[in-house]
């Protein structure tokens, strides 16, 4: 075997790799925020909505969780095109990732809701909190604080999964890698470098989520223990 690796031709392309990494992070951020919001709304819908809404939310969650992201991306891409909407690959990618992570977030937040002790809710009511206040202070915030670690792992997985959007030519990191390897014929080196960039990105995201967690959950910061 004649191993002769040359990483320099790949590393020379660092500006486009950096651009790709930025697009990946951008996709991940959009889908995290939008998908997180959808997930929380659907979890509330499943818990407290009228039966029709709860059923719709469940169909959404089960439908997304039991089909591959690749197929979902194609469905959004061609589905929007067939009703005459021509959106850019980036928009479709962000939309598909949002729909996808929304379903997983719903399931995680729902588990958080189920972990709230009934006595807590009764105590909140007994203290004269309004229903909205009980929902916010006693159910929603503590539930999210409890499932925050699972949520953040899900969002990191989402960032990695965004590589699949290269298949509809969204210009994120994996698409950049495909381009570089077809240009330099250095497939092995290219994908090794890109894999390492993804590892770095996931570490960055984990660190970011840890910091955000410290900021928004002061109780956890003070006591250093999970709820």
């Amino acid at each position: 075997m004649n191993l002769n690796l040359d990483f320099s031709v790949v590393l020379e392309r660092w500006p486009s790799l950096l651009d790709g990494a930025m697009v990946t992070l951008q996709l991940a951020c959009i889908a995290t925020v939008a998908g997180g919001a959808i997930g929380i709304l659907c979890a509330i819908g499943r818990r407290s909505g009228p039966p029709v809404v709860a059923a719709l939310c469940e169909i959404y969650v089960e439908g997304i969780r039991n089909t591959p992201l690749l197929v979902q991306i194609f469905l959004v891409y061609f589905g929007l095109a067939s009703i005459g909407l021509q959106l850019s690959a980036m928009t479709v990618a962000a939309l598909a990732l949002t729909i996808n992570v929304g379903a997983y977030t719903t399931e995680i937040v729902r588990a958080g809701f189920e972990s709230i002790n009934k006595g807590q809710i009764e105590a909140g009511q007994g203290l004269g909190l309004s229903p909205a206040q009980v929902y916010w202070h006693v159910i929603l915030l503590p539930a999210i604080e409890r499932v925050y670690p699972s949520l953040t792992s899900q969002f990191v997985l989402l960032m990695l999964a965004s590589s699949v959007t290269s298949q509809i030519s969204a210009e994120e990191l994996t698409a950049v890698a495909n381009y570089i390897q077809s240009d330099t014929y250095r497939a092995f080196e290219t994908y090794i470098v890109v894999a390492l960039i993804y590892v770095v990105l996931s570490l960055v995201m984990r660190a970011g989520f840890f910091g955000i967690g410290q900021l928004i959950f002061p109780r956890r910061r003070r006591l250093g223990t999970p709820l």
Partner: peptide, 15 residues
């Protein structure tokens, strides 16, 4: 766990 499966696929098949 920090690498997308897609990149691992490309690495084995093209790399």
């Amino acid at each position: 766990q920090g690498t997308p499966l897609l990149v691992i696929m490309f690495l084995t098949y093209f790399g």
